[in-house]
């Protein structure tokens, strides 16, 4: 029979291993999101078509991730998609006349929001709205345009 103290020690090691594994999983594997509620501020934008955009998609400026999409709802009057975003508090220098567009990371990749900074001196605050938006590019629409345009020109 293993001695009492050894058993207790081994059980302690077992539990520590479990906690350490969970810790590693959260930091190493999932890269637990740094965008929690208190060090971000919220802005929103209306798009006429968001394509394949999903909640938690990244929000980028010049390719650098500054926040993420927190919610997507439909505006009942204008039939536009309202995308709520949480932006890191350190990146509080987005001009009010910036434009937002939905791009895709690669042909098969998921969509993200890219913000093009404008020139105003006034910056977006919490609850701010980006007015100028470019909708997602839908591959099928592009294909349709490419196929039917030459015919139209001939007429």
């Amino acid at each position: 029979m293993v001695s009492r103290r050894l058993i207790e020690f081994l059980v302690g090691v077992f539990i520590i291993l479990g906690v350490a594994a969970l810790f590693l999983l959260s930091l190493r594997v999932s890269g637990l999101s740094a965008y929690s509620a208190h060090n971000t501020y919220k802005i929103s934008a209306q798009f006429s078509n968001i394509g394949d955009l999903k909640v938690r998609a990244p929000v980028k400026v010049a390719g650098v991730r500054i926040g993420e999409v927190t919610g997507i709802t439909l505006d009942k009057k204008s039939y536009k998609a309202v995308v709520a975003m949480a932006i890191d508090k350190n990146d509080n220098n987005i001009p009010t006349d910036s434009s937002a567009s939905i791009l895709s990371a690669s042909l098969l990749g998921s969509n993200y929001i890219s913000i093009n900074p404008g020139f105003e001196d006034e910056m977006l605050k919490s609850g701010g709205v980006i007015d100028e938006t470019n909708s997602a590019v839908i591959l099928e629409n592009l294909l349709g345009q490419a196929i039917f345009k030459p015919k139209d020109k001939k007429k």
Binding site: F14, I15, L17, G18, A21, L22, L24, L25, R28, V29
Partner: peptide, 15 residues
């Protein structure tokens, strides 16, 4: 108590 701990250890070691 043991199974969740074992599972977490399983996950990280498989990764």
């Amino acid at each position: 108590i043991s199974l969740p701990i074992l599972t977490v250890i399983f996950m990280i070691i498989a990764v």
